[in-house]
Design a protein around this nucleic acid. Sequence first.
DNA 1: TGCTGGACTTGGACTGAATCCAACTACCCG
DNA 2: CGGGTAGTTGGATTCAGTCCAAGTCCAGCA
Lengths: 138, 138
Amino acid sequence: MSDLLERLRGRGWRMTAQRRVVAEVLDGDHVHLTADEVHSRAVAKLPEISRATVYNTLGELVSLGEVLEVATDKRAKRYDPNAHSPHHHLVCANCGQIRDVHPSGNPLADLPDSERFGFTVSDVEVTYRGLCPNCASA
Amino acid sequence: MSDLLERLRGRGWRMTAQRRVVAEVLDGDHVHLTADEVHSRAVAKLPEISRATVYNTLGELVSLGEVLEVATDKRAKRYDPNAHSPHHHLVCANCGQIRDVHPSGNPLADLPDSERFGFTVSDVEVTYRGLCPNCASA
DNA sequence: TGCTGGACTTGGACTGAATCCAACTACCCG
DNA sequence: CGGGTAGTTGGATTCAGTCCAAGTCCAGCA
């Protein structure tokens, strides 16, 4: 939980109230929040925090690999605090909710060299789409 | 090629000059264009076509399943005319270029029921990320 | 403990993508 | 060929995200 804060301090971060709040919000629920949702939850704890700061902090967390950016095709990017256990996503095509899933195979291994076009492939991202029980029955 | 136009007519579309032009643009090169690129190519063939119409038409093509929407995490959505042969995407993290790839496994099969949370899963989308030869050497 | 340099934050303006909407146009059926 | 209606227009609007110059305040050092 606050090992996140530890890790950040260890990386030479200045620990400011704003950064702490953003980290807390992400650590809180394990849902996939949009930047704006992160912002409004952060505002609840620290009213003066600005949107720009939330974006900055999220960007920094992402480039430190502490948080994952998830771009489903919905409007806004979502942020996934669960960056340390590899997993993929199942998203509802209707309401946009996201769940973490852990499929069995390793898709990276399924991409033969002949299909790599000289790219250095470093990462795969798998998104399953469908309808959640709620939207399916509606 | 113009079986696309045929199919559309068959689905009860009014065939207008604008729609024809958008369909032609997509059918032309097999690259992954952004909506704006589609628009500017369309303008070259039919100067009065408006952005709104391009968006409308693309949206309709997508919901008919004739064209795929690809949301990498870059700025704009891209449209993939190659909707009838299942394939996945390899995207360069630096310059954003996209290539179609055909991995061997079937990731849908890799998702056990216990990981489906009651969703009716209808589709998988796999995105490989890395650097293209060009960006890797830079 | 108190100072100070530079990392952080602020908020408002700005950009780029996409959507909305009300007036207009033109396809297609009879 | 005339009318009803699907389709189009373009300008305004929304929405996510970025930029920037000015101000703030953290951390390391004396």
